[in-house]
């Protein structure tokens, strides 16, 4: 049975975030209609015109097409990295939070803290350094650098999601309804993954949006440094890197336009994340006409296994 919640009402910042993300997606989609991003369509760099709304780059390729390719590539890498981090981190966090203070909890949290010892960007660079930038071949399967960047960024985010999931799980496990479900004879696995998890998702999703913003930034930085996707494939980062040298010749469009798209992405996800995350844990509003007892903060009516000596009813 699918859980139903009313969608959160975004404030002004939230709407700006939505608009930014939509613009980003617009460029990414519309730009693909411009044709092949690797095709040489002009003899050299040209300013924006009707035929080439973003102008052309230093080799004469349409910049809108390349920006679109870059925006999509960056988006895919970031989505898959966040997806990977959630798939790995959330179950880890839920299992750790299930028995707060238990052995698994301690083990997992120590591992997570070790991962977090390095600043995330340094950690990702370290991983990429280990794996190298050349394509890796595992039999018939070729793993290109894009996938490895996604994996490295994702691995860097596993601690964040594990912590969020764990914190949310710890809180949920102490709620009355969990004890009630146990009393009803619902198996532990179902309680954890069908009931508690439903309440863990909203904070995780909020973090996911914020993490998305950081991932876009990180991927841009890595590509800028040449550690990301290799040419001729574009990502926003390596477009901006190539563009740096052109500004002095007066070719302003080359760095500014892809750079703006990058900023839109980061800003948009950042603002969206604030909105989604801020609404986690909120209950649905009552339907009009239904009288509601003044809400009470649910107090634990069943004591925890090591109770306060004063309250042992």
């Amino acid at each position: 049975m699918r859980a139903r919640t009313r969608p959160p009402h975004p404030g002004v910042a939230g709407w700006i975030g939505v608009v930014c993300v939509l613009l980003y997606l617009l460029v990414a989609t519309v730009g693909r209609l411009q044709g092949d991003p690797a095709a040489l369509v002009a003899p050299g760099p040209e300013a924006p015109s009707l035929g080439h709304p973003f102008g052309t780059d230093h080799l004469g390729r349409d910049l809108l097409a390349r920006t679109a390719e870059g925006a999509w590539t960056s988006l895919l890498i970031c989505l898959s990295s966040i997806g990977f981090a959630i798939v790995v981190g959330v179950p880890l966090g839920v299992l750790a939070g299930r028995r707060h203070g238990g052995r698994l909890d301690g083990l997992l949290m120590r591992a997570v803290e070790t991962l977090q010892a390095l600043p995330q960007f340094v950690f990702v660079m370290f991983l990429i350094g280990l794996m190298g930038t050349a394509d890796m071949h595992f039999g018939p399967l070729t793993v290109g650098n894009g996938a490895r960047v996604a994996f490295a960024i994702g691995l860097g985010f596993v601690p964040y999601f594990a912590r969020v999931a764990r914190a949310a799980t710890v809180v949920e496990m102490q709620e009355d309804y969990v004890a009630n479900l146990r009393g009803l004879g619902v198996p532990e696995r179902e309680i954890l993954f069908r009931e508690v998890l439903v309440n863990v998702w909203p904070p995780v999703l909020g973090q996911a949006c914020l993490a998305m913003a950081i991932a876009v930034f990180a991927e841009g930085g890595l590509s800028f440094l040449g550690l990301g996707v290799a040419p001729p494939h574009a990502t926003l980062g390596n477009l901006i890197a190539d563009a740096g040298g052109q500004i002095i010749g007066g070719d302003w469009w080359y760095a500014t336009l892809p750079g703006t798209v990058l900023v839109l992405g980061i800003l948009g996800f950042n603002l969206l994340g604030d909105t989604v995350g801020g609404r986690s844990g909120r209950r649905a509003r009552p339907a009009p006409g239904v009288r509601r007892v003044p809400g009470r903060r649910p107090s634990p009516s069943v004591p925890t296994p090591t109770p306060n000596p004063k309250e042992t009813q």
Binding site: A213, V263, N270
Partner: peptide, 24 residues
């Protein structure tokens, strides 16, 4: 939970400044 949020906010301000600095 909060560490990510704090960084996110910092990044926003930082980005704005960085964009301005780069352009200017």
């Amino acid at each position: 939970m909060t560490p990510v949020r704090r960084v996110g906010l910092n990044r926003r301000g930082f980005l704005g400044l960085a964009a301005l600095a780069a352009a200017g």
